[in-house]
Design a binder for these strands. Structure first.
Lengths: 354, 354
DNA sequence: GTGGCTAACTTATACGTATCAGAGGACCGG
DNA sequence: CCGGTCCTCTGATACGTATAAGTTAGCCAC
């Protein structure tokens, strides 16, 4: 009468009168035993219902999991919902698949639940956060596993894959300046966690811990500052509450309510920008006639929008792919990798009405 | 001079002159030792740079990974690219996150690489395949881990979460019949792996190993058969080559090329249906005036399309969520869970021109 | 005949932890 | 003063495997 437990390697060995080591070799090192014995062992294993070497014990012994972890600080489903994140994750997933590595999506630490970072069964992490929370960074460092940042380094100076946010933002703003805009609204991501939608008094100097946010504000200033020094211009910065279209629409409200509203709006993402267009349309404001709108990311919805959105294209898929490739390479070859961006001019921008 | 290797629990114990068991208890069972000693141990651990109990050894000892595996047979990135898969995965990911479980995306077996199913570090699988390849099913069974099917049971009779594909398809077809359509084209998923786009001679009786495909064809026949028995009708079934919009457009070609083309097309997914609309538009065929089109899934693009697509809504997110919940429940409580669907009538269907 | 080499297997060990079964002392009630 | 109980802590063990080191037999060359 067979046990309810699956047989172990030892049981297979006993059944054949060979040593456990030989069974192990039958599975892992065919050159260590004769072909006949190997065949006999594998056949017996199948017949006995042996599931193969226990994955956990195997991992324990070898010290390798064959998996890559991905860390975010949004809820896990964000990876499947946000258009830009999805494009990036497709690249991550593709390279993992090609390499035969599992992709472990590590949930953020929920209140009441322990953080999974200290216990995740992975050989390395891709950190898709900007920035990684300090506590998590500490937990991550304790793991002493390889880490590659996605969009921003986990710690300044560490390897990551991203874009030149400052230059990209500068180019986007320069496009508006070239069109003749001088009253410009900027819709930034939240400056801090759980912040409200609000006009930022500090403008482009707004303090924020988010690396990309900071760099893009700097980029906008690079292009807008000189133009405004010529006189007559005005920049108003609004921090959005979240990353969704509705947050962009909400952030547009104080800009469009102004007595002398901006003739153009720079949004830090296409989703925010599409929200702006929606809000403008609701108010009967013509885009781009009365208001030019520029996004960031060039997600599929940008080109499908009406009017099609002028935006900054970044290679999302490749960004994700390169991050995994970098993680799979030897540590000594890892370094910051900056991918190119490009302003894509579409129908949502035009010269301001004279 | 400190070693390059991180300290182990034993090293922490030695440094404090306590037993390794006590250190373990300090981390896992606070009630087993005095508060002061515990604090002393945790402090010393931090000071020594102890990363905490090794996750792999911990998992080995406990026999639990705290992770849920997800199996598909498309390339991994499909989960981030396909609109319906994304919605489902969002539900999967959400429940995993709420539960503090990692979500392990298991790549399909690439030629030259060993299948990951036998070695994935998970406590259970969600199988998002229709159907699971026989070889993989065998590997999966060998693991003796809990498995919940998504859309279809791994083996008939096993627990899964899905919809009543037959009833849903029947309702979609009945909608067309009620509008008066009698010449109807059906665009099915591929009947077998790597099949070509082709008109299927067997029509609605087309042989296929895909469970959902079969059930939907049956559902179409339920509704179309009686209507056609009244005379004058015709059903042509075309199998698409893939799941993308372009595959739908390609599948529409033989239907629209026909001397007496259908007045309506039933597609098995919104993506295929949107491809049909695109192809019709290219040919100057008015939808719904000259051609009605019905999709399946109600993905976001369906309502955003022009014309908005009539389709069958299924609760993707909830489907994914319930699959994970079922996996997390005790085995004895797992059973087939059929979620409701609903025909959503939009602008892509109308009575045939008289 | 002997030394050395290879093939084919076995023995022994270690991976790092969690937990069971105690040991020892303190404390309490009687 | 004694038995019992609780609180802390320790010692020992097992989880299932991979692999280094060792053993035996066979074979060949000299």
């Amino acid at each position: 009468m067979p046990s309810d437990q699956p047989p172990r390697m030892r049981d297979v060995a006993r059944a054949l009168g060979v040593s456990q080591a030989t069974v192990s070799n039958a599975f892992n090192r065919p050159d260590q035993l004769s072909r006949e014995l190997r065949d006999r062992i594998l056949t017996a294993a199948r017949d006995l219902g042996y599931p193969g070497p226990d994955p956990i014990a195997n991992t324990f012994r070898r010290g390798r999991t064959g998996a890559i972890g991905l860390i975010i600080h949004e809820p896990l489903q964000y990876l499947f919902e946000d258009p830009a994140a999805r494009l990036t994750m497709a690249g991550v997933a593709r390279v993992c698949g090609e390499h035969g590595s599992s992709l472990v999506l590590v949930p953020r630490a929920e209140p009441g639940l322990p953080d999974v970072v200290p216990t995740a069964l992975v050989d390395g992490f891709v950190a898709f956060c900007d920035p990684l929370e300090p506590e998590r960074r500490e937990l991550l460092r304790a793991r002493r596993l390889p880490v590659v940042g996605l969009d921003a380094p986990v710690t300044p100076g560490e390897p990551y894959v991203g874009i030149d946010d400052r230059a990209a933002a500068r180019a986007a703003a320069a496009h508006l300046v070239a069109l003749g805009h001088r009253r410009i609204g900027v819709i930034s991501f939240a400056l801090a966690r759980d912040s409200e939608t609000t006009v930022v008094p500090a403008g482009l100097d707004a303090p924020t811990g988010y690396v990309a946010n900071r760099a893009r504000l700097d980029g906008y200033r690079d292009a807008l500052g000189p133009a405004l020094d010529d006189g007559g211009g005005r920049i108003v910065v609004v921090a959005a509450r979240g990353v969704e279209e509705a947050d962009g629409a909400a952030a547009a409200v104080p800009l469009l309510d102004h007595a002398e509203p901006p003739t153009a709006i720079l949004a830090m993402s296409d989703r925010l920008a599409l929200g702006v267009i929606a809000e403008a349309t609701r108010r009967g404001i013509d885009v781009p006639g009365d208001l030019s709108v520029v996004g960031f990311d060039d997600v599929p919805a940008a080109s499908a929008a009406d009017p099609a959105l002028t935006t900054v294209r970044q290679p999302h898929d490749r960004k994700g792919a390169e991050a995994v490739r970098m993680l799979l390479r030897p540590a000594s070859t890892r370094q910051a990798l900056i991918l190119p961006t490009e302003v894509v001019v579409r129908a949502s921008t035009a010269p301001p009405r004279t």
